[in-house]
């Protein structure tokens, strides 16, 4: 078969340029993170890692992620079920609305929450009367993280569920299955992988969100520093090795995310070739 660009010279040149650019733009930064983190030796690395403030930042990041991911998972499933299984006025509008967090700058996302829940905000002032503080505390970080990551699960599920159609679910209804049983026994097995992929993406973004969180966190060391904020603070303090130690944890998580994604795609491709 003859194809465009198959001449050996063209092929070698294009692959060569692609590999050099990939190494320079993607691989080099990745290597640099770990090289900088380990610059002072492995002992200093452990010492930085077990720093009180770094541990606190890891704890807060885990808390935020553990709250955000399940909430957005449940919301994503309900939204996908709603827009792919029913036709109702405003369906398109709803799908457009859910894309807003993708278009909004993270700083603007933080700003709108600050306006609402800050001391002078509509809700913030009222909650202040009950001694409930949302801004510059962990609930605010959780709220903006939910905002920033809410489209991921739904975005993975909607195209898939649209393509699959509702026939099997309808058959289950005529057989007398309840809604929960239909979801668990019919729908869930079909969307398992897309759901997992959505969760992986939500998780990666929730752990790493910086712009929105830095607006609402107020960066109180040991209290409202998530891991990305900790990276920033140590970097600004000229503690490069410390900053890259925290950064290396986040980079490790990014690598795990990429590996999980590749594994899911590989399985999907294999299933397709078997079918």
């Amino acid at each position: 078969m003859i194809r465009i660009g198959d001449a050996p010279g063209v092929r070698r040149l294009l692959i060569g340029v692609a590999l050099v650019l990939t190494a320079l733009f993607l691989l080099l930064p990745l290597v640099a993170i770990f090289a900088q983190a380990l610059m002072g030796g492995i002992d200093l690395y452990w010492q930085n890692l077990s720093d009180r403030y770094t541990l606190a930042a890891i704890g807060l990041t885990l808390l935020v992620t553990l709250l955000t991911v399940p909430i957005n998972l449940v919301f994503g499933i309900f939204l996908a079920w709603l827009v792919t299984r029913f036709n109702f006025p405003g369906r398109r509008l709803l799908q457009t609305l859910i894309d807003i967090p993708f278009a909004v700058s993270p700083v603007v996302a933080g700003l709108v929450y600050l306006l609402l829940y800050g001391r002078n905000g509509w809700l913030g002032g009222w909650l202040d009367g009950y001694d409930i503080q949302i801004m510059f505390a962990w609930p605010g970080i959780v709220l903006v993280t939910i905002f920033v990551t809410c489209p991921f699960v739904a975005r993975e599920l909607i195209p898939l569920m649209q393509a699959q159609g509702a026939r099997e679910e309808e058959a289950a209804v005529t057989l007398g299955a309840s809604g929960w049983t239909i979801f668990r026994r019919v729908t869930l097995p079909k969307i398992r992988h897309a759901l997992l992929y959505g969760v992986i993406l939500t998780n990666a973004r929730a752990v790493g969100e910086f712009g929105a969180v830095s607006v609402v966190a107020g960066a109180i060391r040991g209290q409202t520093n998530t891991l990305p904020l900790q990276v920033e603070q140590l970097y600004q303090d000229y503690n490069t090795v410390g900053a890259f130690t925290s950064a290396s944890l986040l980079a490790l998580l990014a690598l795990l995310t990429l590996a999980a994604k590749a594994a899911l795609e590989w399985r999907a491709a294999r299933r397709e070739s078997l079918a």
């Binding site: 993270p106 790493g208 969100e209 891991l227 990276v231 950064a247 690598l255």
Partner: peptide
Amino acid sequence: PFALPTAV
């Protein structure tokens, strides 16, 4: 770039 936190 999507998996790596922007601050990192």
